[in-house]
Amino acid sequence: MPDTRPGMTGHFSTVTISGVSFTADLSGALYWDDEHLLVVSDLHLEKGSSFAMRGVLLPPHDTTETLARLDTVIARYQPRAVIALGDSFHDREAHDRLSVAHRATLATLQAGRDWIWIVGNHDPDLPRNLGGSIASDVGIGPVVFRHEPTGAAGEIAGHLHPKARVSRRGRSVERRCFASDGERAIMPAFGAYTGGLSIRDLAFAAIFKSLEFTAHVLGDSRMHAIAAARCS
């Protein structure tokens, strides 16, 4: 369904989780209209420099790119609050490596809205000086936001970086996706360098208990809802 709001060029689809209706954005962000809440997961900021420390000199432009994408989606929805759903930083020292310019960008994005860092396995103890507040999980109404999925009803999590592959006539397309069965959802990774794990991996079976869930796939210009059983 094309969006008609001004400034919206992308597409989105609607995902219902525990009775709450969310907008799954083509960028990989999730928006809760009623709460004016934007959720992004697994930013993995400074992943490039994290590899560089270990001798793999990946281009250092990933933080610039991830923050630019975040800026775009925040400008589009103008949320009152933002939740970063864990693994916002690729390693425990990554926040120390943020450049002055990137810190300033972050501060601009945080200005005038609530900002909640949910801790993840990559960034379990975030410092206080990043702006916003820090939490292990956040519950709002019937929904709870936490980094690692437990499979509980009403849970919106990240951590697994879901991606789905569709194969037809000897050709295949693989893209990031939201995975949801209506009771719980796992968000795609938002970071520029974050790869993915196939939704057919056992990790997803452990959460959804069956293949009865839907992959909301981030296409090139629109979202596609595809049955998990149809993906590989």
Binding site: V166, R171, T214, A225, I226, A227, R230
Partner: peptide, 22 residues
């Protein structure tokens, strides 16, 4: 032959259709 020029979105849309049919 594999047909080129088939946009990724078309392929995904086709798979999404299956869901609708189902």
């Amino acid at each position: 032959e594999a047909v080129y020029g088939e946009a990724s979105d078309e392929l995904l849309a086709e798979a999404a259709e299956d869901l609708v049919r189902e």
